[in-house]
């Protein structure tokens, strides 16, 4: 029976990489369309780097995702630590509150936020994008951190205080090292959520702040260019470079620990 399960699981990993392999293969396709394969070319990579507006949207997405992920992780750490130490009534309600944005369809939240920003006369741009992405990634980041924070020994802060640590020292020397794997996982999850967001961005982007997924989505009308495949392939490459840079072993440790 375990052998069957192993077979199924390996199949799942293959399944996850099928479209990724296709994206990479078709990024070298000489035919201008995905419906045929006409031999190999590097043309789409050349076009990609010449496409200034596409590269600009990539930068916008990266900027927004970095800020969003960082802010979401910081707020998430605070909330998770606070909740782990909170023994009063309404813990369940607090958890439900932080998860609330998960159960509202994004378009509803996006349109509603747009009207909030317009009544407060906040100009649309990077800031509104970050706020919009924050509200969809904060619940995910917090939930990841909460599972880790709940495992911490409740007597830790007392011990630290007895040893003469200030609250800040308690955090940097005691909590943060213990939470580090979860912090990385939460950051990556928020980064991915923001980086790939379409719906919130549709309503909350402003002059000069078109994100990459928005650009791709709006070019659907004229047809996706093969350069988009090239960009997809390059982003996978970038991911692999980061993974190798950090060292697979470290990454393993981070993820294993963060999920306990």
């Amino acid at each position: 029976m375990d052998r069957i399960v192993n077979g199924i699981a390996r199949g799942v990993f293959v399944f996850l990489y099928i479209p990724i392999v296709a994206v990479i293969v078709y990024s070298f396709n000489a035919a201008g369309t995905n419906t045929r394969f006409d031999g190999l070319t590097l043309q789409w990579y050349v076009e990609l780097f010449q496409d200034a507006s596409l590269m600009q949207t990539l930068r916008t997405s990266a900027l927004v995702a970095v800020i969003t992920a960082t802010v979401a992780t910081i707020i998430g750490i605070m909330f998770a630590l606070g909740l782990a130490r909170y023994r009063g009534r309404g813990r369940g309600a607090l958890m439900a509150l932080i998860a609330l944005p998960l159960i509202v369809p994004e378009i509803v939240l996006g349109v509603a936020l747009l009207s909030v920003f317009s009544t407060t006369k906040m100009p649309l741009g990077i800031l509104t994008l970050v706020l919009g992405h924050l509200i969809v990634s904060l619940p995910l980041a917090t939930l990841v951190l909460m599972s880790s924070a709940a495992m911490l020994d409740p007597s830790l802060p007392e011990a630290a205080t007895d040893l003469g640590c200030t609250p800040w020292q308690t955090f940097t020397r005691v909590y943060f090292p213990l939470l580090r794997p979860a912090v990385v996982a939460a950051w990556l999850l928020s980064f991915t959520t923001s980086f790939s967001n379409i719906v919130m961005s549709t309503f909350l982007s402003g002059v000069g702040s078109t994100t990459l997924p928005l650009k791709i989505y709006s070019s659907l009308k004229t047809g996706l260019t093969p350069s988009i495949n090239a960009l997809g392939a390059l982003l996978i490459l970038l991911t692999l470079v980061i993974v190798l840079l950090v060292g697979v072993s470290q990454m393993r440790r981070i993820l294993v620990e963060s999920r306990t």
Partner: peptide, 24 residues
């Protein structure tokens, strides 16, 4: 660990910062 944060933040931040040059 630090390396990871420096590496990933570094890559994206470099991309991100250069976006400021786009608008006059």
């Amino acid at each position: 660990m630090k390396k990871l944060i420096v590496a990933s933040v570094g890559v994206v931040a470099a991309l991100a910062l250069s976006s400021c040059s786009g608008t006059g």
